[in-house]
Nucleic acid binder design. Structure first.
Lengths: 226, 226
DNA sequence: GCAAAAGTGTTGAGTGTACACCCATGC
DNA sequence: GCATGGGTGTACACTCAACACTTTTGC
């Protein structure tokens, strides 16, 4: 811990942040991937990431990467885990502090508007081989997301301002990978005041219009949801 | 993420591991602290820690620190969180990957045998001011421990091979900070096969001897305990 | 026989789970 | 009037929480 004990040139370990950005799009849980343009991993898909700069904290670095490489700001972000295996990068020793982030499906992301060809929302169930240990990071991220759905209001990061209860339930089902009982789901969600009615309704095709809800709080909170 | 994009001399960030080692001793949840011998933090108490070496993984670094600075091997160890605030160390930029570890109260630790005067088991309820952001690390560690007691068999890290159910319950109570109902506790613990009878009994003073139990599994496992 | 800690069951409240039909709308 | 998705209630099983007395031992 003491810099004087072991000068820094004895420790050439790079520190990076990598962010697994999740969203529910087209009926699937997807993660944002970028194709690497050069170096030994050229052509491989990877999570958006970058080196931490000396003047920024880990959290700030993650936010910057999110903004610069994925074009999103002000979204749900939390630290996942620090990955520091010796062999995680063939180019040399590095430690990656992984973050996981959530975006609404209605945000206009580069990948969504297909502006860049080397960035894409991949279905987490059909991932290609990823560079580094990014497959592991995605897997840890999914585990965290599934867990946290059950005991927090984290889902607010995935849904637009207003949504129907069916949309909320569908998001849960897609992430958890199994169906939920409609009546029990609605009972519980309303019971714990996770959401509140907006008073608005949305008409959609030839069926009964649905009431629109919004989250009562858009800040991380521990709640027993399921 | 690409080393060529930003050469390492642009990033002089040191990476350390710091371990919060917990144990239940003399009726209190305690954490192992070491007094710093030199530098700007001289005289302050801190968690055992050290720089990560280029040839070792984060987990290996944590194990080495545990062994070198605290004299313990082969104990429960898991990563807690990566702390990377810009101001966490006045000497310069660093990132600390914090670990948390558990030891049985019956292990012969340096601090226990009072071999070193600058190492001690502090009651977590009466901590002195710690160096760096170590107070935060201890606090995150305690939260994790309390949480995990409820849904895992993590307690095996805190108890000796054989123990009475009262000892187990007392450990839970000390960590959680509140009392538990004896009958309900025993019912639940036995119900989920967290422990098994050894067949032995232990006599202690002028009271009824207690049956000795051991954990059915001494590997991390998810179980609904409380 | 008494002090000290070990050990043991039952009940009521509340929560989770399973399950099927009517409602409002557009065409 | 029919197709489409929205919306609602009840009964049973199970889990959780509260609670007090008997047993075994050493002195």
């Amino acid at each position: 811990m003491k810099k004087t004990d072991m000068p820094q040139y004895f420790q050439s370990i790079l520190i990076a942040v990598d962010t697994a950005i999740f969203s529910v799009i087209d009926g699937a849980l997807r993660v944002l991937l970028i194709r690497i343009g050069s170096g030994p991993y050229k052509g491989k898909w990877a999570l958006p990431g970058g080196l931490v700069r000396p003047e920024e904290s880990l959290d700030q670095a993650a936010e910057r990467v999110l903004s610069e490489k994925a074009g999103v700001d002000d979204i749900y972000l939390e630290q996942l885990y620090a990955f520091g295996g010796v062999d995680r990068d063939v180019r040399g020793r590095s430690v990656s502090v992984a973050y996981f982030a959530l975006v609404n499906s209605d945000r206009c992301l580069p990948a969504t508007i297909e502006y860049y060809s080397d960035i894409a929302w991949y279905d987490t169930a059909k991932l290609p081989k990823l560079a580094f240990d990014h497959t592991k990071i995605v897997s840890v991220g999914i585990d965290r997301l599934r867990n946290k759905l059950g005991y927090s209001n984290i889902a607010y990061g995935l849904l637009p301002k207003e949504f129907t209860l069916t949309e909320l339930q569908t998001a849960y089902e897609i992430i958890l990978g199994h169906e939920l009982d409609k009546r029990n789901f609605r009972k519980k969600i309303l019971d714990i005041d996770l959401v509140k009615e907006t008073g608005k309704i949305r008409k959609s095709g030839q069926s009964r219009p649905a009431r629109l809800y919004s989250f009562s709080e858009r800040k991380p909170k521990i709640v027993d949801v399921l």
